[in-house]
Write a protein that binds this DNA or RNA. Structure first.
Lengths: 315, 315
DNA sequence: GGGCAGGTTGCGGCAAACGCAATGCAGTTC
DNA sequence: GAACTGCATTGCGTTTGCCGCAACCTGCCC
């Protein structure tokens, strides 16, 4: 039982004749007649009174038309919801980020985005590690991910990349705060807390350590950046973090962020990622724009090559 | 947006892969893939996450599947109602009859029929004249009609015909009641009431009058047979009616029905009619059987030629 | 990095739907 | 009541869309 045949019967019943229905539908009368007959065969019961000039539905015919009308209503409701999705009036956006991205800039972005698209639901999933973010992205559990220096996972496409050097971060009153720049070796003399080895920041640091031939010994590690910042705030510890993670405190003159002279740490970057080959729905696509602008505003080079947009036709 | 494509997507989503869906549906994998792709093109939005091993629906895909499930429920509800109609568990039967048919035999028939098919609704429309019955039948306002000696309307098919002579009907104590048979001329000496000229009974009588060369003058006419019977019951009047209309009173020995020697009146018949070429739905078809049996029980010749039964294939 | 399992794409075949035209049929007009 | 008009039905050749097969591509697992 198809929509098609039903539409013919529906139109014929509404307009009172097969001819009118055929004209209205832009098909030949014979098609209308045949489709109705076929429908009767399939259902095994008469739907219209045959052998008359005008169409008159049987009891079953009336029932079927009512059924079809309900079906139409259902379809219209769905079309409306679909149009909402396409018009960005509704939709879900799933983001995965490292803890380091949580802060005023991201909050501002979300606030502005929500003001512009009040119907869009956004879930920001904070992951304990970049690997977790990558996994979520690769398995389509989230649309987009924000990671610090992502790995070279073949399933991942980097949509935008912003240089985000790792800096030494300390309380404004800390002895190291006076320096314009620091070498890795300069850091050994103060008490250090660091992210856990599972975090990308730490892995990056390990690379730099081996290049520079310096080995740093943290007194405390944690996967909670909030905890690290708390330790830094006390003045007892300093740590290594991307500026992004402490932008608010630096702006407040509460913290100082001192660049470290090390190519490995200077070339570090924040990356906006999605699964390779994934076509994003309208809402996440719009979020992608916003995030790209957000990263651009961070003032570094953006690599936008190879963004896959959602289109009806295949790329 | 067809049912077909949706079923493919539905099955693929349910089973988790296109191959499983293809096996389950008995089609090639390529068909499933193509139908889903086409659906995405039509809707202009992605429904599944492409470039993965297993099927995963997008937000829109989930929505669409939910929509399809609702559609399925709707279709099942309709199928159930359709099956009720075909299984005679529900349905409407519209009958048109002349007043003369109202009485115990018809009531018994309806009671028995209703006991056998409690779900079937029956409307018995009493018409003031046979012409009215014929019109209702011809215009598909009723399924079947019971008339006394119907006209030769070309739109009408006679499904069954039972001889039902017109008799002189009088109170058991009436002078005419003693006769075994009467001639038209014998009737002139008593007070007569008759149906109105619009009724078929009366038209039949007119034919007989002209053949026999006798003219009867009724003192009272009415289109209400109940009124005529009431007049007869008083003993003052006698009338002319088919036996059927007074079968109960005759059985009770309250009335007498005396045959009239006149070929025109003897050949009179009760006819079960429907519109020419009409295919009756299941319920009225069953009623047709019952009515035919009812007429058969009246003990006269039945003409069953040319009954059109409801079948999927054309006759 | 080779094999496996699953999805996509190109191609030829076939069935369903279509349009056209002839026919049948009901109701109307003269 | 006969021709006519408007509608539905049917037969036939054409077109369209779906299908299966097979080759190919792509993740994913060993």
């Amino acid at each position: 039982m198809q929509d098609l045949n039903l539409r013919y019967l529906y139109e014929a019943a509404k307009l009172g004749s097969m001819r009118a229905a055929a004209d209205s539908l832009g098909v030949a009368v014979s098609s209308v007649s045949r489709q109705i007959s076929q429908l009767e065969s399939e259902l095994g019961i008469g739907l219209i009174e045959h052998g008359r000039r005008n169409i008159k539905l049987t009891e079953t015919g009336v029932l079927l038309i009512e059924h079809f009308s309900e079906q139409l209503r259902l379809n219209e409701a769905f079309d409306a919801r679909l149009s909402d999705i396409k018009g960005l009036r509704t939709g879900r956006i799933h983001l995965a980020i490292g803890e380091g991205f949580i802060g005023q800039p991201l909050s501002n972005l979300l606030i502005r985005f929500n003001a512009k698209h009040p119907g869009l639901f956004i879930d920001v999933h904070m992951s304990a590690s970049s690997n977790e973010v990558v996994r979520l992205v690769a398995e389509d559990d989230v649309h987009l991910g924000l990671v610090f220096q992502s790995s070279e996972d073949p399933r991942i496409r980097v949509l935008a990349s912003v240089r985000q050097p790792l800096c030494a971060v300390m309380n404004a009153g800390h002895p190291l705060a006076a320096h314009k720049s620091l070498k890795l070796a300069d850091l050994k003399s103060h008490r250090l807390c660091l992210p856990e080895p599972s975090l990308r920041t730490r892995q990056l640091l390990r690379t730099a350590e081996s290049i520079e031939g310096v080995s740093l010994q943290p007194s405390v590690t944690s996967n909670s950046i909030t905890l690290l910042k708390s330790l830094v705030q006390s003045g007892e510890f300093f740590t290594l973090l991307p500026v992004l993670a402490v932008s608010k405190e630096v702006e407040n003159r509460q913290f100082a962020a001192v660049p470290i002279v090390s190519s490995a740490l200077q070339d570090a970057a924040v990356q906006l990622i999605c699964r390779l080959g994934r076509r994003l729905p309208p809402a996440p696509l719009r979020m992608l724009d916003a995030l790209t602008a957000y990263l651009e505003a961070s003032g570094a080079t953006i690599d936008l090559s190879g963004i896959v947009k959602e289109t009806p036709t295949k790329p």
